[in-house]
Amino acid sequence: MPPRSRVTIRDVAAQAGVSVATVSKVLNNRYGVSPDTFARVTAVIKDLGYEASLVAQSLRNRRTNVIGILVADIEPFSTELLKGAADAIRGTGFELVVYSAGGRTGDPTGWELRYLTRLSGTLVDGAVLVTPAVDLEGIPGTPVVAVDPHTGRAALPTVDSDNLHGGRLATEHLLSLGHTRIAMLTGRADLKSAQQRETGYRGALASAGVPVDENLVRRGDYDAKVATESARELLAGPDRPTAIFAANDTTAIAAIEAARELGLRVPEDLSVVGFDNIPESALCAPPITTVQQPIREMGHRALELLVRLINGEETADTHITLGTELVVRQSTRPPTP
């Protein structure tokens, strides 16, 4: 008879009717698997004669002293966050490795799951996920901290900022200047931060007695290309807004460029407020009024929390929310009469 081909973890998952991540949990005796599922997967492993790789077996009970940071792309937000994580890792005995999906966000199969399944227990002792686009309960059991988490129920430890308050601050600033036709370029719909910033925008308008014009709420997706198209549509019409609140600084910069293309001046013809306070926001012409979230501190706190979890230390607070504040610069002014 021909030799039997080697059984893989995917074979086990298919036979048991579960995900690869669930099989990984069973193999590593991690939390998050029901007794019935555990028994079913164990039976399939025995029936198929599956053997985990010798590398995984040899490393399962050993430290790699490596922490992974998983980012969808290397862009201003993740760059600032990485600086904070790099500061926090000094003196911990761990090394930091960055894994990038190259901008492949919105992947329905979850690039984070694939990376974590590949790295879990063999190459890293834990991971920080930056703006994950998956249901956090579906991630393998290796210690993980999520920064700017998905909109699903956060089963994992998280670090984010007070995005709701920040959205209100941005909108209230524009209202205080006398603007009432205030547009918004929203963020990534799958992230809690985007939902909260929009909720803050809507709440501030409601408190001021200004009805929300749904025609002024357009997609930004935290993406310059998407935001540019939306800003052009907003500003090309006869009843254009006098101000735009962009859900991050990258899309605020895109809105300013779109305004210039249409012959509009910022802030004389259009006021713009961003969110994040990345270094580029202060270098723009004009410098952008923005909501500051402490991005470096978020990276620092996420790394500190993860190290405590890896070391098995008691952690009182595993859901950390940091404050936001308005930074007023030269991209906003009262509307021209």
Rank of each mutant, 00 (worst) to 15 (best):
T332L: 12
A255F: 06
H300P: 10
E268W: 04
L27N: 03
E214K: 10
E257D: 15
L303G: 03
A86Y: 05
V12N: 10
T290W: 02
L234S: 00
P279I: 08
A252Y: 07
A316Q: 09
R6A: 14
G102F: 01
I288S: 10
N28K: 12
G312Y: 05
A86D: 14
A254N: 05
M1L: 07
V128S: 10
L309T: 01
P294A: 04
R6F: 03
V12W: 01
V12P: 13
A39T: 14
T250C: 00
S281F: 03
A243P: 13
F94D: 00
H300K: 09
F275S: 09
A85K: 04
F77E: 06
C284S: 13
V272D: 07
T290F: 06
T250N: 10
Q15V: 13
T158W: 04
R10K: 15
F77P: 02
L174P: 06
A224S: 12
V210D: 06
S58D: 10
E297N: 02
D87H: 05
D47Q: 15
R197T: 04
G274W: 11
G84Q: 02
G91W: 00
P157V: 09
L185K: 10
T105I: 11
G102C: 02
E137N: 12
D36A: 14
T22G: 11
R188G: 13
L54S: 15
D276Y: 05
A316R: 13
V307E: 01
T158L: 01
M298H: 08
R30A: 15
V20H: 09
P335H: 11
S34R: 13
T318D: 03
D239A: 14
F275W: 12
Y99L: 07
H319I: 09
L191G: 13
G203T: 15
V145W: 07
V272F: 01
G200Y: 12
P241W: 00
V71Q: 00
P241E: 02
G178N: 05
D87C: 00
D269I: 06
R197C: 08
L306F: 05
A189F: 09
H179C: 05
L27R: 11
V12G: 08
T158P: 08
G126W: 05
V33S: 01
G178S: 08
V20L: 14
E51S: 08
H150S: 15
K25P: 06
G110S: 11
P335S: 11
D36W: 02
D239N: 15
A43I: 11
L191I: 12
G274E: 09
V144K: 02
T109N: 13
K46C: 00
